[in-house]
Amino acid sequence: MSDSSASSSKSAPLLSVNEVSGLFESAKKYEELNVIGTGAYGTVYKARDLLKGGQIVAMKKVKVALTEDGIPLSTLREIALLQQLGAYKHPNIVRLLDVCHGGNSLEREQQLVLFLVFEHVEQDLDSYLKRAPGPLADHRIRSMSFDILSGVDFLHSHRIVHRDLKPHNLLVASDGRVKLADFGLAKTYDKDMRLTSVVVTLWYRPPEVLLGVSYNTGVDVWSAGCVLAQLHTRTPLLPGASDSDQLHCIFRLIGRPPRAEWPENVSIVIDSFPEYPPQDFADVFPRIHPHALDLIQRMLVFDPAKRLTALDCLEHPYFTDEPLT
């Protein structure tokens, strides 16, 4: 056919565009099975990929507020980055398999439903620890610690700060490998879209976040330190009940920081806390290997600049003294 017919279809483009868009609710490629988790910003479903022989996947549904100029730049950047990271196939990062959106049924509400399709991983670290019949074997703790820090180091080497590391966001595969999930979408998670019913846990938050000062990659090292401690004890290390209680918990463990280290421009004054002395970590964690103790202690340092980096952690004697098996 000549292109005269091609140009004739130009007369009704609006119609054609809208008609065809209906076909592109490719979220329909997936059959939802059940809800696996509800977080503050979305629901995660277990689903079947109908185009790939029924492979089981985890689908995260995220609502994105549309702007006057369509899908926000920040969301596009974050998705592009997730895709880019995915190309590295890092063993400790949950694999992003597909991204799709739920068509334009919600068009008038000025929001778009995004589906992020991830590899399905057996369980999260929270349920893994709850289900453990007794203390984890030392070699398990060590390899899980190494996995977590490798994932964190990978993100940091790509200038990504996770900001919300916690057992719920760490997935444990059937072979015991730990993978980081739920990162890279900080800007997409619009505050207005937050489900207020979901309580955001504070237990893994570092002091700089609780105090509201600027933060960086150090947040993840702090959070990872809390998680590493929890691998040994199977209970949260710093279960604060509120923002201020969380700070009390922290200072009761590591001691109130010296005045010189208290950040400027913070509304909370240092004197609102008693002069807690630092505890001896050996008393807090009886029976754990001194190397493990030393590593955790160096991760839970008040001043983010004095904390180990994720790479430092990986080179700590806890991991290097004996080869990991």
Partner: peptide, 9 residues
């Protein structure tokens, strides 16, 4: 939106 879906994000 059609474009994004088509190029699979």
């Amino acid at each position: 939106r059609i474009l994004l879906q088509t190029i699979k994000f």
